[in-house]
């Protein structure tokens, strides 16, 4: 308990310390504000853009793309992982394609998506799905395969139908690994959405970073970069909480 509290305190110290060093370095003229802006300017720009509604607009745009992509990646990943875990033939069929996806940095396919879908949300979503699909699939597969075969056989000999086996044993037993895959997927889906937006879109946090960079508006760019970093932290915390909950639910 005290250890937890002290690690929180140290985290806070480092956060405040970084802001102080950043502001001091700019105020003292060690680094030009053109390159790094300053915490005070970033804070002011954040409030101003919040009043205009700019932040909300871009945040919502990214959040919608993210949610769609994460929902598609999770349902497809879990469905395919389940099927592959229950039927070996499905696993073998998918194997070469999964290997391809796993070793290809999905960004290499981004220009292909642009050619097919144009700039905008469909491309962002497609890129993010490609980023997030493999860990969710792989974890679900491992989860289903690790279900105790004795348990399955026992249920089978007591007359459980395949559907019962699936719903009552395979699914609950693999939930922790599925959630683990989703934990990996969250970060990757976020990265996919942002990178696609960075390259070409007309709204979103990634777009705002690239757009303000183009006009050398360092302060506004910093606002959006920091916002993305905070979003990443919040999402990861949230997924960790879900994971803790699913562990409790299972037992």
């Amino acid at each position: 308990m005290t250890l937890r509290r002290s690690s929180w305190a140290l985290g806070l110290v480092s956060f405040v310390g970084l802001l102080a060093i950043w502001q001091a370095a700019v105020s003292a003229g060690l680094i030009g504000a053109y390159y790094v802006s300053s915490p005070i300017a970033v804070g002011e720009a954040f409030v101003a853009m919040l009043r205009e509604g700019t932040i909300q607009r871009h945040f919502t745009a990214s959040a919608i793309s993210f949610l769609i992509a994460f929902a598609i990646a999770t349902s497809a990943g879990v469905a395919l992982g389940m099927a592959a875990g229950m039927f070996r033939t499905v696993e073998r069929t998918l194997d070469p394609f999964v290997w391809f996806l796993y070793s290809t940095p999905a960004i290499a396919l981004y220009p292909l998506f642009v050619a097919w879908l144009g700039f905008g949300r469909p491309t962002s979503v497609a890129t993010a799905v490609m980023f997030a699909l493999t860990p969710i699939y792989a974890n679900t597969l491992t989860g289903v395969k690790n279900v105790s075969p004795q348990l399955m056989r026992m249920a089978h000999s007591f007359g459980a139908r395949p559907m019962d086996l699936f719903v009552r044993i395979a699914l609950p037993a693999s939930v922790p690994l599925i959630v683990g895959g989703m934990q990996l997927g969250v970060g990757r889906a976020l990265a996919g959405v942002l990178v696609a937006e960075l390259f070409g879109a007309n709204a979103g946090l990634g777009f705002s970073i690239a757009y303000n960079a183009q006009y050398m508006r360092t302060t506004k760019m910093m606002v959006f970069i920091l916002l993305v970093i905070v979003c990443g932290l919040v999402l990861t915390r949230a997924m960790a909480a879900v994971s803790a909950m699913s562990d409790r639910w299972r037992t």
Binding site: V195, L198, G232, T236
Partner: peptide, 22 residues
């Protein structure tokens, strides 16, 4: 480690490509 962990974790989680324009 207590001091360095939070900023390092933040940059570990955030997609590094967003720093590209900077």
């Amino acid at each position: 480690r207590g001091i360095a962990m939070t900023p390092m974790m933040a940059l570990y989680i955030a997609p590094s490509m967003i720093l590209l324009p900077l």
